[in-house]
Nucleic acid binder design. Structure first.
Lengths: 247, 247
DNA sequence: GCAAAAGTGTTCTCTGTACACCCATGC
DNA sequence: GCATGGGTGTACAGAGAACACTTTTGC
């Protein structure tokens, strides 16, 4: 998805919470998937001075397309653009953000906000998911957090903010549908990859083993792979071909 | 979907626009599908004194679950509950509600609102779709509209408010996916129906003819139909069975 | 040559499709 | 009986699953 980045989030929390440019009670949360070492990973942020992890997300400027906002937030966390990014669901339970996390956080940062500050209001969140190349990514914390980390989707941190665990779950569910089309458009794998690596990716997402030979035939029949040179890595077996996605 | 109706929209426009109980800049639009005479229909509302039609929709109370709000809005337009209702997409282009419709409308109702009234703000809208039994439905206009009417999805009114045409389109697209599961949970058909009627419904939604005999086999194999007595309507041919959905 | 892993062939099953045939109904 | 439309049988094609076999690689 190619979008226009028309805005920029202020990375200083004090300044951020003082702005009045955001749509109230509405936010975006991004499930950013990466793939590494046979495991599917999700990028999460650790809140400043708290042992709580959250999805990268943020707010929408009053004069900004929602898709553009999602794209901007992804860019701010990864500095990547031209990335596969799709909206999948909007989370609107009234108590989903009932929590003192933001309160504790701002206190940790020694920022004093009135009880009725917009940050503490109930928020409805639009969920997006992105598929990016783990090996290319640097990651950048936002104004609320002290660091970013990748987590295996089957080994998420113990304490997760708000309903973000549910959002990840629903994002996974969504990802599994129409997987071929999404993998094809995605950036989960490096430019060149072997059939084995592609199979590992599928197995991770689907959560079940696939048969090597049938998988190969299936992928080739989808007609989106281009066969490249062989990969010689010194191992004592037949060298696999590299593949890349057709343009 | 069984939900709690915890709130009520005021049906008087003057009172409605004076309330401050809604989440700002956020709305819900419902694509309510019905089925009648071999055609798939969508419920639309005609704005008061304007030749503009819109989807039934409304706003979310600050202390109301979004799903409950959608359910409430459906109930207010149809007085039906226990209805198949699902969120499908959130529409967030910044200019989607740039229009003087609300302005003209309130003028028609002789309601004077300041230019910065919340009604005129940009709105992001969460799309839901419902599948209801046309034959059971009465319909009730809301505070903005003077009447409700069903439109064939292939013959929508000429002038449609905002991006509601696009919302209907996307709702249709969504409906076509996983159709079996949705039809099963739906209320599009009356309690008892013939295989022919079910086939007509499928053909309408998919937009293509299906083979009578293969369709019958497919439906029976899905194992969600219960065969009832035969339908004798006086026509000179073999009487079809009635079916109903299994519990 | 040998083990390991990649690539290809073959068979079987199941689903979906196209065609045919039989059955009930009211006149 | 006969036209009409509903219900079922069957044969064929394609996709997917399970199996076997061949090929390539470094030691």
């Amino acid at each position: 998805m190619e979008k226009n980045i028309t805005h920029e989030t202020n990375n200083n929390l004090q300044t951020l919470v003082e702005t009045n440019d955001f749509i109230r009670q509405l936010s975006i949360d991004c499930v950013i998937f990466g793939f590494h070492n046979k495991s599917l990973k999700v990028l999460m942020l650790k809140y400043f001075n708290l042992d709580i992890w959250a999805l990268p997300g943020g707010f929408i400027f009053r004069d900004e397309n929602v898709d553009d906002a999602a794209y901007r937030l992804l860019y701010e966390r990864t500095h990547l653009d031209e990335i596969f990014l799709e909206q999948f669901y909007t989370f609107g339970n009234k108590n989903r953000t009932e929590s003192d996390i933001h309160n504790r956080l701002t206190k940790n940062k020694e920022i004093d906000l009135p009880k009725d500050h917009w940050l503490f209001e109930r928020h409805i969140s639009i969920g997006y998911y992105a598929l990016i190349d783990y090996t290319l990514s640097s990651t950048f914390p936002d104004a609320f957090s002290e660091k970013c980390e990748w987590f295996d989707v089957h080994n998420l941190p113990k304490e997760i903010a708000f309903d973000h665990r549910e959002i990840i779950e629903k994002g996974m569910e969504f990802l599994r549908k129409n997987l071929d089309y999404k993998i094809y458009g995605s950036n989960l794998l490096p430019e060149k990859f072997t059939m084995k690596e592609l199979q590992n990716l599928y197995e991770c997402i689907l959560g079940e083993p696939l048969r090597r030979n049938n998988f190969q035939r299936k992928m080739l029949s989808l007609d989106f792979l281009e066969r490249l040179e062989k990969k010689f890595d010194g191992s004592a077996n037949k060298a696999p071909y590299y593949y890349k996605f057709k343009k």
